[in-house]
């Protein structure tokens, strides 16, 4: 079972100073665009930000991977063409 990209809000706020869940991401697999909040997020345990995988709701392609280690975070976006980040 998955939750949605809203669950990335806290972990991504450790890295970025604007909210990334409202950003529109385009999938590198199928081209579908939608908010990061709408991605399907799978983790190894509920609430643990140690490892999270976010998949496209359209084609299941992995769009974002986030791993939080004790001293650094790894953010893998190879499945995302672009992120349109609102800066209002």
């Amino acid at each position: 079972m998955h939750v949605d990209g809203n669950a990335l809000a806290g972990p991504l706020s450790e890295i970025f100073t604007v909210d990334m869940t409202a950003a529109q991401g385009q999938c590198a697999g199928c081209g579908q665009a939608g908010p990061v909040a709408g991605l399907h997020v799978y983790g190894d345990a509920p609430g643990h930000a140690m490892g999270m995988v976010a998949r496209c709701p359209g084609c299941d392609n992995v769009m974002l991977r986030l791993v939080r280690g004790p001293e650094a975070a790894w953010l893998d976006l190879r499945g995302t063409v672009s992120l349109r980040i609102p800066l209002g």
Partner: peptide
């Protein structure tokens, strides 16, 4: 506690 987070919902 940390927050608030989430700007979409």
């Amino acid at each position: 506690l940390r927050g608030p987070v989430g700007g979409w919902f």
